[in-house]
Amino acid sequence: MNDGIHAGNAPKAVGHYPHARRVGDLLFLSGIGPRDPADNSIPGNEYFADGRLRKYDIEAQVRAVLANVRAVLDASGARWDDLVDVTVYLTDMARDFKAYNAIWAEHFPDAANAPCRTTVGITALPTPIAIELKCVAAFGSRP
Rank of each mutant, 00 (worst) to 15 (best):
M1E: 04
M1R: 00
M1Y: 06
D3N: 14
D3K: 14
G4T: 07
G4V: 05
I5M: 01
H6Y: 10
P11D: 09
K12S: 15
A13F: 08
A13S: 14
V14E: 14
V23T: 11
G24Q: 13
D25E: 06
D25M: 11
D25K: 01
F28C: 01
I32D: 06
I32T: 11
G33P: 07
D36C: 05
P37E: 07
D39L: 10
D39P: 13
N40H: 12
N40W: 05
S41T: 15
P43Q: 00
P43G: 09
G44H: 01
G44S: 04
E46C: 11
F48P: 10
F48G: 02
F48W: 12
F48N: 09
R52E: 15
R52P: 11
R54S: 11
K55Q: 15
Y56V: 13
D57M: 10
E59A: 15
A64N: 02
A64R: 05
A67K: 11
N68E: 13
N68W: 13
V72F: 10
A75S: 05
A75T: 03
S76I: 05
S76H: 07
G77E: 06
G77D: 04
A78W: 02
R79P: 00
W80K: 07
D81F: 08
Y89W: 08
L90C: 04
L90W: 05
T91W: 11
M93L: 15
D96P: 09
D96N: 05
D96E: 06
F97I: 09
Y100S: 07
N101M: 08
W104T: 02
W104M: 11
H107G: 06
F108V: 03
D110T: 13
D110Q: 12
A112H: 07
R117D: 03
T118Y: 00
T119C: 09
T119F: 02
V120Q: 04
G121R: 00
G121Y: 00
I122N: 00
A124G: 02
P126F: 01
I129M: 14
A130H: 06
E132I: 13
L133H: 07
L133S: 06
L133E: 03
V136N: 13
V136W: 14
A137Y: 00
A137V: 05
F139E: 09
F139C: 02
G140W: 12
P143D: 04
